[in-house]
Simulated assay, not measured.
Amino acid sequence: MAFDSISDFFAMGGYGFYVWLSYGLTFFALAVLIINTLSKKNKIMKVVEHRLSREQRIKKAQNREGTL
């Protein structure tokens, strides 16, 4: 094993702060990216759903007018 103890592992030869900070920032950025993507996807899906229901209502109304 490259490290003698768990504290040596976390210290990373004196560079532990920078190593773990870079990991933390990377995972934070990925989490923000994933959350943002899912949020935008949900908003887009709601807009599409709203437009589809509106189109169906319009078609239904046009069919009723045509039968009168």
Rank of each mutant, 00 (worst) to 15 (best):
M1N: 06
M1I: 04
M1A: 01
A2P: 15
A2V: 04
A2G: 07
F3K: 00
F3A: 02
D4E: 03
D4R: 00
D4S: 00
S5N: 04
S5V: 00
S5Q: 03
I6G: 02
I6H: 01
S7W: 02
S7I: 02
S7L: 13
S7F: 03
D8W: 08
D8Q: 05
F9T: 08
F9C: 03
F10K: 00
F10Y: 04
A11R: 02
A11G: 04
A11M: 12
M12S: 05
M12F: 08
M12R: 00
G13K: 04
G13Y: 07
G13H: 06
G14L: 03
Y15E: 13
G16V: 10
G16R: 09
F17V: 13
F17M: 05
V19K: 05
V19F: 14
V19P: 08
V19Q: 06
V19D: 00
W20T: 12
W20Q: 06
W20C: 06
W20N: 12
L21F: 03
L21M: 02
L21T: 06
S22A: 13
S22C: 00
Y23C: 14
Y23M: 04
G24V: 00
L25W: 09
L25R: 03
T26E: 06
T26D: 05
T26P: 11
F27D: 09
F27N: 03
F28T: 10
F28E: 02
F28R: 08
A29V: 10
L30S: 15
L30K: 08
L30W: 07
A31F: 12
A31N: 07
L33P: 10
I34V: 15
I35V: 09
I35C: 12
I35T: 13
T37L: 14
L38M: 14
L38H: 04
L38D: 06
S39E: 07
S39W: 08
K40T: 10
N42C: 12
N42E: 10
K43Q: 12
K43I: 09
K43R: 05
K43E: 10
K43G: 06
M45Y: 06
K46P: 11
K46R: 08
K46W: 00
K46D: 15
V47Y: 01
V47R: 03
V47P: 11
V48D: 05
V48G: 02
E49V: 05
H50A: 15
H50W: 02
R51F: 14
L52N: 10
L52D: 01
L52H: 03
R54V: 15
R54T: 13
E55Q: 11
E55T: 14
Q56L: 15
Q56G: 05
Q56C: 06
R57S: 11
R57E: 15
I58L: 14
I58G: 12
I58K: 01
K59M: 10
K59Y: 09
K59Q: 07
K60S: 10
K60H: 09
A61D: 10
A61W: 02
Q62M: 07
Q62H: 09
Q62R: 15
Q62K: 14
Q62S: 13
N63G: 11
E65L: 15
G66Q: 05
G66N: 12
G66E: 05
G66F: 10
G66A: 15
T67D: 09
T67Y: 04
T67Q: 01
T67S: 08
L68A: 07
L68Y: 09
